[in-house]
Structure formats: structure tokens, C-alpha cells
Amino acid sequence: MDKPVAIVTGSASGVGAATALKLAQRGWNVVINYSKSEKEAQETQAACQSAGAHTLLAKGNVASDDDCRAIAAAAVQRWNRIDALVNNAGTSVFGEDAKWDNIDAEVFQRILAVNTLGTFQMLRACLPQLKAAKGAVVNVSSVAGALGIGSSVPYVASKGAVNSLTLHFARQLAPDIRVNAVCPALITSPWFDKGMGEGGLEKAIAATEAHTPLRKPSTPEDVAEAIVFLIVGAPTITGELLMIDGGTHLGTRR
């Protein structure tokens, strides 16, 4: 009961799973959230438990306010506290599905519902406990929201909105709660691999290695390290949009 508690949405795999594990290794208890990938979520749970954490597996779609409130309530019932929230759950469309003519209102709204509305709803659901703990929120955004590039127009719009929400809540919730965002570019994660289709991730990695200043994409662990830093090692940082993009925002390397 004395350990701090973090909720990490979308933590069955990729950045979310890496973040949950790194927090577990630092002595945190973690809520592992998933919407579909139960097997992968159980694997993340086992890894966190092996690291010494107590865990809670919470199925729920952050696009649903009822699900968000249920996830927060489960953490409170188990530990009576929430010290950190990582809004990592996200979705997009890729390839042919991302072409303008193939994006209808339903697709646009579904992406906004998970990426943007879900971020707001989870923060609201956790707010009393985060305030009591003088806790931290980290929103997993994207360079898409800062640079206007990305897998699809609704994804770009949703992450731009996440960045704006981050700044808004950093002001509104200070001094009790710190609110920051990380903005990765390409990540070598299952989400990118599946979304980009056969050979897509390899092509994107090659382009990143050829054109970005640091010549390499991020791993899920790279992004997780930054998230954990903003939770446990940055007591005077709030309202920051941290670019984790190998220098992508600097432009093409000469």
C-alpha cells in the first residue's frame, strides 16, 4: 500500500508495456490497461510482477467514459491511490485507409475518440487521486501533432489536440499535478509494424536512418525512459512537449 501507483493505458505491448515494466522495476505498482490484446497484456503483467510489482489488469476502451471511470475506480479500490497516469492508448489508419477520400466521419471520430477524448476522460477520472498525491500525467503524443506529419489526417489532428490539452492542463492543474507530453517519431514497436503492413516498418527505418540527424528510430524502451523521467525525475517540469524523434523536427540531415 505504500508503493506509488501508475495507470498506463494501452500497455499490452510497445511503449505502454515498456513503461509499465520500467515503473515496476522502480518500485511502482501498475495498472495494465488493454482493449483487445489480452494475451499480450497478461505477458506484460507477468513481467511487471517478476520485477516485484503488484499489478491490476484492466480491460477497457478509453473512448468510453464509463470504461475510464471503471479503470480509475479499480485502482482506487485496490490501492486507494493513483500517483501517475500515462495516456498511451492510441489508434490511427495507415496506407490506403489513410487517403483523404477513404476517411469518413466515422473513422475520423473513432481516432479522435481514442487519442484525444480518451486522454481527457482518463485524466478526469483520475483527477481526485492525482491531486491528493501531487502526481504526474504524461500524455503520449507524437511529432504528428507538432509538425503536421503522420500516418493520417485524423491522427495528426488528434495529436495536435493532445498537445494543446497538455498545455491547458499543465496550467489548470498546477501546482498540484504536473502534466507533460512526449512526442515520438518512428518507433520500432508492434503498433507501427502492424499498421504499416508488410515491409513498411523496414522502409520507414531505412528512411529514418538516411535522413534524420541521429540516424535511428526510437525503441519502445527509449520512449518509456523519457516517460518515467517525467514521472519520477522531473519535479519542476510541467507543460513540456518533449520531442523524442532522433532530431526529425530539425529537418532533413544534409
Rank of each mutant, 00 (worst) to 15 (best):
V179Y: 03
Q49F: 00
V162T: 11
H211T: 15
G10N: 08
D101M: 10
E209W: 03
L214H: 11
I82C: 04
L57Y: 03
C48I: 10
L250D: 09
G150E: 12
G52T: 09
L242H: 04
I7Y: 02
D97P: 01
I149C: 07
A170Q: 07
A6Y: 04
Q172S: 11
V30E: 10
K3P: 00
N33G: 08
D2N: 13
D101Y: 01
I237N: 00
L201I: 03
P220F: 09
N88E: 14
G60D: 08
Q77W: 01
R78H: 09
K59A: 14
V179F: 01
I71R: 05
D104A: 03
N61W: 00
A204S: 15
L214Y: 12
A58M: 05
K99C: 01
V76D: 02
A207V: 06
S141L: 08
A136H: 04
V153P: 06
E225T: 15
V138N: 13
V114Q: 02
A47E: 10
V153Y: 10
C126N: 10
S13F: 00
V232M: 09
M122H: 07
G246L: 10
A75I: 02
K22H: 12
P213G: 13
V5D: 05
D97I: 01
N33Y: 08
I149G: 02
I149S: 12
T166R: 10
R253M: 14
M243F: 14
A132C: 02
V143A: 06
Q172M: 12
P154A: 07
A146K: 15
A113I: 10
V107W: 04
G118V: 09
E225V: 09
E40H: 06
A20S: 15
V5G: 03
F192K: 00
S13P: 01
L201G: 06
Q42T: 15
A161N: 07
G118T: 11
E43C: 00
L147N: 10
C126A: 13
L117T: 14
E198H: 08
N163F: 04
G16C: 06
E209Y: 03
A53F: 01
R178D: 08
T212W: 14
P175Q: 10
L23F: 08
